[in-house]
């Protein structure tokens, strides 16, 4: 069971993410959008969307800092365990609360504003549901478990495990004694990755950073566009 949960299941989810994204990118450009409903409702969106997006961006950066950077780096830099966990709990708590509050506002908006509700696809609820579950579990780990118990040192268990998964050396044994809440958080997060190619979440991969450097005016020539399509069909010759 442990092998399935911490070796097979993660790769299943990540493969769904990878293959799903690539397939959709290749076959569904026309449906690849942020699915904004701002035109239909602006006021609640402003509160919910801003709280959620900025919250989740910093939550993501926090996960990079906590999971991908080995504990040795912090020790070498002289960051004590106490200082690390205090910072992680404060930052993670604040930004996690922002994200969760934003998600709840967005859910309330989607349910209560008729125009938005009537134009909601099941996939929108799927994305919202998995996001809420994942963020709520992660937040309860940070704010409830860590406060009521001792701060959990995931940098020696979950951290190495996740780096192992990414480097194709997964070790399920590392996850054996991880608290249940954290285990559930990881499993729902993986499920979120798995469903994301089939939802509006694809827009994460369209963050338009190229906009910062491109020329403001864009010209296209008809013939050139046709030639471009031709090139792709010929396998990019």
């Amino acid at each position: 069971m442990s092998e399935f949960l911490w070796v097979v299941y993660p790769y299943l989810c990540l493969m769904l993410l990878l293959v799903g994204m690539l397939t959709r990118y290749n076959y569904d450009q026309i449906g690849w959008t942020s699915k904004s409903s701002e035109l239909l409702e602006k006021r609640l969106l402003r509160l919910g969307s801003l709280l959620f997006h900025w919250g989740i961006i910093f939550v993501f950066l926090g996960h990079v800092a906590g999971l991908l950077i080995p504990i040795g780096v912090y020790e070498a830099l002289g960051v004590s365990e106490h200082l690390y966990h205090l910072t992680a709990m404060a930052m993670g708590g604040i930004t996690g609360l922002m994200a969760l509050a934003g998600l709840l506002v967005l859910l309330w908006r989607r349910l209560s504003v008729r125009r938005v509700l009537r134009n909601t696809a099941p996939a929108d609820f799927v994305a919202l549901g998995f996001l809420i579950a994942t963020v709520a579990l992660g937040l309860s780990m940070t704010l409830i478990y860590n406060v009521s118990h001792l701060p959990y040192e995931y940098r020696t268990t979950v951290g190495p495990w996740i780096r192992g998964v990414l480097l194709l050396h997964p070790d399920a044994a590392l996850m054996a004694h991880v608290p249940l809440i954290l285990q559930l958080h990881i499993l729902t997060a993986l499920a979120l990755f798995a469903v994301s190619p089939f939802t509006r979440l694809v827009h994460i991969f369209s963050l338009p950073l190229a906009y910062l450097r491109r020329a403001p005016m864009q010209y296209r020539r008809r013939g050139a566009a046709a030639a471009y399509v031709e090139d792709r069909r010929d396998g990019g010759r």
Partner: peptide, 15 residues
Amino acid sequence: CVAACPSGAMYKREE
């Protein structure tokens, strides 16, 4: 509109 499009999806046809 062309200058404001983050995706570069809007364009002016040269011809």
